[in-house]
């Protein structure tokens, strides 16, 4: 090669490999979009129990009236008289966080068996949005159960 011009010509006429990546694209797309969806659903399922619990603590333990949260709380309590709605609320308040934990766990957890080493391997992706939702839901459930136990001990 004698000059930059020759190199330039060679580079401009270089035959470039153009690979197809449709299958790779599909796998990554499903994976990417799946974890974000689980996080969104988790937040939604967490919202009602969180508002209920936070409103309760603020109103009855701290004596703070938080406007719309107090209105939401009064609305929930007023629905308590209809048995079907009462059960539905219980399901949302307790089932919501459980479902949110399951959805988010499935989104970040991967299990497989290595037949060669006879190992069952569980991997967890460090996706902080999903992990935070799982922890927050766990905390809400723990607080609910503690509340129920304390209530039953105090008022058997």
């Amino acid at each position: 090669m004698k000059s930059n011009e020759e190199i330039k010509m060679k580079m401009e006429n270089l035959s470039i490999p153009d690979v197809k990546s449709d299958a790779t694209k599909e796998v990554l797309k499903i994976t990417l979009l799946n974890s974000r969806k689980s996080a969104h659903l988790g937040i939604l399922l967490l919202l009602l129990p969180f508002l209920f619990f936070f409103g309760n603590v603020a109103k009855y333990n701290l004596g703070i009236d938080l406007g719309f949260i107090s209105i939401f709380l009064s609305w929930i309590i007023s629905l308590d008289t209809v048995p079907v709605v009462n059960w539905l609320i219980r399901f949302i308040l307790l089932g919501g966080p459980v479902l949110a934990i399951l959805f988010n766990l499935f989104a970040i957890m991967h299990m497989y068996t290595n037949r060669q080493t006879h190992e069952f391997i569980i991997t967890l992706k460090l996706k902080w949005v999903n992990i935070s939702i799982i922890l927050l839901c766990g905390l809400i459930l723990l607080l609910f159960f503690t509340y129920l136990v304390v209530e039953n001990v105090n008022h058997p």
């Binding site: 299958a23 790779t24 599909e26 796998v27 990554l28 499903i30 994976t31 990417l32 799946n34 974890s35 989104a107 970040i108 957890m109 991967h110 497989y112 991997t123 992706k125």
Partner: peptide, 15 residues
Amino acid sequence: TVADLGANRFLELVD
């Protein structure tokens, strides 16, 4: 890696 993202779970969806 795509495996880190948990893509192995979806591999069966792709030929």
